[in-house]
Design a protein around this nucleic acid. Structure first.
Length: 848
RNA sequence: GCCCUCGUGGUGAAAUUGGUAGACACAAAGGACUUAAAAUCCUUGCCGCUUGCGGAGUGCCAGUUCGAGUCUGGCCGAGGGCACCA
């Protein structure tokens, strides 16, 4: 009998080298098999893997292994999102080049991922910072250029003064750079753009097709694209200046009769007329102090600057209203001008109340209430138009908006217009460590494509980066070149790293294809990604850009047989840990904390008590991280996988706990001693089974495992494993035939393969059964037991539970109920109603 | 301010279509084994009276229903997202 402890160190290594040497997870096209493309968001090689990676890749690995057991041809690749700023920052700090730093990190992290026992096809590994990868990206850039989807324009950009780089709008968080945290400045630069707005409509509409995406993400993207249907209206202006009209965009033309002012953005062209006006300059200054982000301004006071202009209501020329500059109107949406209808827009109402402007309601919620009044809350709900001359009686909003637009168009007063909030994607970055843009400029500053045969434009090697700004721009021997005796200057900006990750899933389908970024046959077989798994922080940027890339690449020549890159999306929660501080308010790592008598102290100075803070997602800045490598070394990969899945559903945050990982480790040890007990039991070879409990339970168990794996309820999968352990420990006090044990137990072990692959492989191996690894099926008939617990309710309350035969009828059951001694006291009186749910419950309504 | 999501024991959570609330695990307490400790195993959601039984109970208040954690309305609280988007 083999009763020694389960030695994960030997066994995990053994199986990992077996999988490696046999290339078990390397994948090829097999048209006889259904494919499954399982992809986790590839990591940025920042140094070492963290628990977030462990969770992300464990979830993906469980799925990949499960699908593979179910007969799918599974593509499960991994790579490195290896361009980006941290490499530059680290290189500056350590006086080395970003390439060396990045390559070292990749090698560390790859070895760490390997000891997790992931079923990854490493033959397809890619790294975005290699010329083999970005060569194709440069080709795509030029393709998009030819298609008119790339353009250059001068624009105000978000300038990060610390990182000396430009940020996309999406990368500015509360007016600060998303990485450096510096307050963002406005600066005018020549920039390259991808014309993502060309696909606004399709990117919006396709969201409906994405049935297996979280609703939350779809709503975020929908809001981001921000389609609104409305109307452009030119307001005639009476003015001493040369101003004839002001164009506004509105989604509520039906409230025109309630107009009492017109408001302009401070950046509106008309502001030119006031640029020398001292009061206006003061006003502009005042606006800038309130900040530009919505949340800061949300509760800020609405303020305005009254001009000497007067605007005319196109539907009622008698109605002449003042024109203001106002802090709540944005220049980069619509035309930077709105008409104010205080009764039906809260901002307009706040503004009107401050400046004593008219508040005329034109929508009433109740058709008969013609005296509807507005106090301090604007009415934006449905209703009927009134006080509006020929518009009166129209139903809001279904009739009123289209009818008003129709009227305005007929009278040539306005034009129906669809507006999107989405802006084009600025892709230029003033950085060294990124993909070079394959463009050169002639002496007149006209851009030219770098010829295809000269691709890739390789990033020149640099020994030491300049302390700030773009080192590439200062590298004259690279920057200036001659083609056909003409002098050129290279584009020294590099591409936003979101470009790198916008097509990597295509590259994985044919990582080694030299001719082109992908091979169309491979794409047609593998794409789309069946399940994409990653953090919700990429809900908008990365996912939207990837969706755009598919549209852009497939655009016109329609090469792809799919619209959307990611069929299914799963966003996993974060890994959290308590935060610790010493009495001096410094963050303390869990490694430096010791527990004594239920209280925590600083390990190096045990008189210092630790202040325990909230559990927050693991981050270096709060020092509440746990190093996965150490945990794997101490407890094994299977224990870590088991724990990271066990406590919370994968889509929610999970708390890391030392007790939890120890408990998972112990559970595997317990499974192992049970396993050895079962091996002994098999050899006893009883001639027949004493009962059929094992068979019934096994089928029930497989059904539960199957259901829970299908629905991503991995925490319940772990619970099922605990249950089957408890069941088996009890059941093996009975005797079963060798055949029965092998049949059921090998199925049970097979279901463990996705979660704890090393352990389950070892157990199956020691059972000496054939190597065919197939997800077990279950017999639905076995699951329905013959004796069931029937719930007895009296007046809606559960009063008893009786064991009866399956499919018992109502009459028979009632007889049994009446015989039950402890139910008799509830049954005094007359049964006036009874509800019978077959095989479940009976509810007796009794009147006393 | 708007949009979305979520409120279940000391804690993380289960409860597929409305039908046995608290599976599974962590912590704590008690018990068993042991000379003792560790390890292991068992018991325990709350309140009330003697093992048993009874009562209340899924953020709060109503409603629908024979029956509500689950459905509807209102309120309170937490988290996430955002663009004052007209």
């Amino acid at each position: 009998m083999n009763s020694e402890r389960y030695n994960f160190k030997i066994i995990e290594k053994k199986w990992q080298s077996y999988w490696d040497s046999k290339k078990v997870y390397s994948t090829k096209i097999d048209k006889n098999k259904k494919k499954f493309y399982c992809l986790e968001m590839f990591p940025y090689p920042s140094g070492k893997i963290h628990m977030g990676h462990v969770r992300n890749y464990t979830i993906g690995d469980v799925l990949a292994r499960y699908k593979s057991l179910n007969g799918f041809n599974v593509l499960h690749p991994m790579g490195w999102d290896s361009f980006g700023m941290p490499a530059e920052n680290a290189a500056r700090q350590n006086n080395l080049d970003p390439k060396t730093w990045t390559e070292k990190n990749i090698s560390t992290m790859k070895s760490q991922l390997k000891i997790l026992g992931l079923s990854i096809d490493w033959d397809r590994e890619i790294s975005t910072c290699t010329p083999e990868y970005y060569k194709h990206q440069q080709e795509f850039f030029l393709e998009l250029y030819d298609k008119g989807l790339v353009y250059r324009k001068e624009q105000y950009v978000n300038w990060d003064p610390i990182d000396q780089t430009v940020l996309a709008n999406e990368q500015v968080i509360n007016g600060k750079g998303w990485r450096s945290g510096a307050i963002v400045e406005r600066k005018k630069l020549n920039q390259w753009f991808f014309k993502i707005t060309q696909f606004s409509e399709i990117l919006l509409n396709n969201l409906d097709k994405l049935k297996s995406w979280p609703n939350k993400v779809k709503i975020m993207q929908k809001n981001w694209i921000g389609k609104s249907l409305g109307c452009e209206i030119d307001f005639k202006v009476e003015s001493s200046k040369n101003i004839k009209k002001i164009r506004c965009f509105t989604t509520r033309p039906d409230t025109l009769f309630g107009m009492s002012f017109l408001a302009l953005s401070i950046d509106h062209p008309i502001s030119e007329y006031y640029k020398d006006n001292k009061d206006f300059i003061e006003f502009k200054k005042l606006c800038s102090t309130t900040g530009t982000t919505e949340e800061a301004i949300a509760n800020a006071e609405k303020i305005g600057f009254k001009t000497d202009l007067v605007a005319l209501n196109p539907l009622n020329l008698e109605n002449k209203v003042p024109v203001y500059f106002a802090n709540f109107v944005l220049m980069d949406y619509g035309h930077g001008a709105v008409f104010g209808c205080p009764a039906h827009d809260q901002r307009d109402l706040d503004f009107a109340l401050k400046y004593n402007l008219g508040i005329a309601p034109v929508v009433t919620p109740d058709k008969n209430d013609k005296n509807f009044k507005i106090k301090d809350k604007a009415y934006t709900g449905p209703g009927f138009i009134f006080n509006s001359s020929f518009l009166d009686g129209l139903k809001v909003p279904d009739e009123s908006i289209p009818k008003t637009i129709e009227y305005l168009e007929n009278k040539k007063l306005g034009t129906k217009k669809i507006n999107f909030r989405l802006k084009d994607w600025g892709i230029s970055r003033q950085r060294y460590w990124g993909c070079p843009i394959p463009i050169v400029y002639d002496e007149n500053d006209n851009p030219h494509k770098v010829p295809k045969n000269q691709l890739p434009v390789e990033l020149p090697k640099i020994n030491q980066l300049e302390s700030t700004g773009n080192s590439l721009d200062k590298l004259n021997e690279w920057k200036y070149l001659t083609i056909d005796k003409k002098k050129f200057r290279r584009e020294t900006d590099t591409l936003d790293t979101f470009v790198d990750s916008s097509w990597y899933f295509l590259r994985f389908c044919s990582s080694n294809n030299k001719e082109y970024g992908y091979n169309l046959d491979e794409i047609k077989y593998w794409m789309p990604v069946d399940q994409y798994i990653g953090g919700v922080e990429h809900a908008i940027l990365h996912l939207l850009y990837s969706r755009f890339f598919m549209q852009a690449l497939g655009y016109k020549n329609e090469k792809f047989n799919f619209d959307e890159p990611f069929e299914g999306l799963f966003t996993q929660g974060m890994v959290c840990h308590e935060t610790y501080k010493d009495p001096e308010n410094n963050w303390v790592s869990p490694d430096d904390v010791i527990t004594k008598d239920g209280e925590k102290f600083l390990k190096s100075n045990q008189s210092k008590k630790i202040i325990i803070g909230n559990s927050e997602s693991m981050s270096k800045s709060k020092k509440n991280t746990i190093d996965p490598q150490k945990i794997i070394e101490n407890y094994g990969a299977d224990s870590v996988r088991l724990f990271i899945l066990s406590d919370s559903p994968p889509e929610k945050d999970v708390q890391w706990s030392d007790e939890g990982i120890i408990s998972s480790y112990k559970f595997i040890q317990k499974l192992w001693s049970l396993h050895n007990k079962i091996l002994v039991e098999i050899n006893k070879d009883h001639s027949k089974d004493t009962n059929n409990n094992l068979l019934i339970y096994c089928d029930k168990f497989i059904k539960k495992m199957t259901d829970n794996l299908d629905r991503f309820h991995y925490n319940k999968v772990i619970a099922n494993l605990h249950e089957v352990y408890t069941f088996l420990t009890k059941e093996f006090n009975n005797s079963f035939k060798k055949e029965t044990i092998i049949n059921t137990y090998s199925k049970i072990l097979t279901t463990m393969l996705p979660v704890i692959p090393h352990y389950a492989s070892e157990c199956l191996y020691s059972l000496k059964i054939s190597n065919s690894r197939k997800w077990p099926s279950y017999n639905e008939e076995n699951i329905s037991e013959n004796i069931i617990n029937f719930v007895i309710q009296i007046n809606g309350k559960k009063r008893g539970l009786i064991k009866v035969e399956r499919d018992i009828d109502e009459r028979k059951l009632l007889e049994l109920v009446k015989k039950e001694d402890n139910l008799k006291k509830y049954l005094e009186g007359k049964i006036i109603k009874q509800i019978f749910v077959p095989n479940k419950l009976i509810n007796l309504i009794i009147k006393q």
